[in-house]
Design a protein around this nucleic acid. Sequence first.
DNA 1: ATGAAAGCGCTAACAC
DNA 2: GTGTTAGCGCTTTCAT
Lengths: 352, 352
Amino acid sequence: MTQGHRQPTILDVARAAGVSKSTVSNVIRGVAASPATRTRVLEAVARVGYRPNAVARNLVRRRTTTVGILLGDLANPFYSELAKLVGQRLTENGYATTIGNTDGRSARERELIESLLEQRVAGILMLQFSGERSALNELRAQGVPVVVVSCWEERSDCVAVDDAAGVELGVRHLLELGHRRIAYLSSGLVEPKTDQARFEGYRSALAGAGLVCAENLILRWEHPAYLRSGHDLIRELQRLLCGASPPTAFFVSNDLVAIDLIETLEQLGFEVPEELSVVGFDNIALAGLARVSLTTVAQPRDELARAAVEILLGRIEGSVMHPVRQVRLAPELVKRGSTAAPPTVSAASRRP
Amino acid sequence: MTQGHRQPTILDVARAAGVSKSTVSNVIRGVAASPATRTRVLEAVARVGYRPNAVARNLVRRRTTTVGILLGDLANPFYSELAKLVGQRLTENGYATTIGNTDGRSARERELIESLLEQRVAGILMLQFSGERSALNELRAQGVPVVVVSCWEERSDCVAVDDAAGVELGVRHLLELGHRRIAYLSSGLVEPKTDQARFEGYRSALAGAGLVCAENLILRWEHPAYLRSGHDLIRELQRLLCGASPPTAFFVSNDLVAIDLIETLEQLGFEVPEELSVVGFDNIALAGLARVSLTTVAQPRDELARAAVEILLGRIEGSVMHPVRQVRLAPELVKRGSTAAPPTVSAASRRP
DNA sequence: ATGAAAGCGCTAACAC
DNA sequence: GTGTTAGCGCTTTCAT
């Protein structure tokens, strides 16, 4: 039992079973084994308490079965929910996962990629991507498969929702409710590329209704922060609300900030949805709570995870040299209690 | 650039720099190097595009710098928030993390541990633990450090909040508000051990006020489910609410279920906190939203993570043979809007 | 079906 | 300070 505290190796098993190393190896991997020796070896394995050393195996096979998952923030439900799904699928396929938080900083992203490369991961799933060209090049040069998830990236395999179409769904819903002055809100919590695509959707949806998007109805900030966290943001919001022709609704580029907005608006004395409507993006679990009840554009997380893993494993186990594979999924509008018809003029003017 | 697609090894660098393998190794590890050769080697590293192979290093050093994190459910904010903190601290200390979801199933837990052991992780952090004795024994036998986090476990290093004290805080708050009939609710989402400890806290707090805990005010179910998910659970809840002497308040063993309870109660036509008060446990971010505003017993997640990592690294890097280290942290009550004084009799009888 | 032998890419004594 | 050497524990030809 206590044998100097060296873990038993395949050689110990071989000796215990009276066979050679390679025979043990064969038995363990389930190839070429006569029933007789098979049981002998298995017994020996149990007797000495042998457990294969994956590190050694990985070295000699020159590949691991670990995939790296890079994400923005594990405390953000959108990422943790997605990470869970992706991890599940990976496990089912015999892969282990190692996780890294970038906190939205591209320096951190580089470090993490570097580390994953040293670990010789079989592939990488980027649930958030800074968009840095160099990172992608590095990975391509190393021949490590990558798929970018939930964020469109032409230069790489990727699977994402159709951002513009999603926003159009949301904006059109607001238009149908009768809103004409719809504000757009976004924070650095979503990647610049994604935000840009969503903003385009917003603009084109307005254009489709013969409306132009007014500069003073747009509020975007770059740091990954919430309204609550910065007083200047709240001031900007107030300026927006008290301008010449204030909005009657908001489209917000992700649920977390949408919820943050609702909190802030209510704190400022506005009622949602009676006075102001709010639409989010993502459909995180939180949005579905009765107390929150956020109307939002749902990303099909399950599909996202399924497609991402399928593409990644395809690259790892086979056709690395194939053309870029990109999947664009359809978003869906989930109507809940944060949207309603705009207040009538008389009701609106009743405000303090 | 394209060199038959074999990654450059330390030997390639050695040749390129005109030195031996070990000199390169020395430079990379930052030991014994004359400034002259140092730069020569570093140049060669850059020229050939060398990246150390961690797999090979791990094999020869007979240890990795990866720690395994086992948790119940990544989609549960309590775990994902904790996992983030723990991962952060680990990264700061040069460790990578690999994550595994047990989904609360102990079979899955065993599989994951087995896999981590094969990967030869340096240590394991169990953010949820089934309590299975055999798992712990196995790990001890392998000499792999483990610390159980947020769940008390005498047989192992662990750091957790004082569950009983936490519940007493919550129950005493309810008592002070004037509640006398306080129900206890818990689901399989929290480990049996933890639930037991919390239940004891509940009982002792009641006893401290000269109250006995009535059987018909207790609702516990074992599967990790929500009220919403099962109609029989809702029926049981209704039975509890319509009994001879119904509760005026609930203590719930975790926030997710507490929020679930509030949703269910409101759906059933009860107002929270006007008719029924609810106290949770954990203080996940969600609980702090104005729309949710859950009074709850906070676990100091930051402290939990800090202590857990400190103990684990202590074991990994040093004193494996020391006596069990256990840290019990003090919980804190966070009063919010889900608790209030019980309704007066006349108000109560006004119910439909 | 089984065994012998040659590494995988690196570190760590130990010589020089 | 630098080079030589002997493995780490396993897989994988290649003989037998």
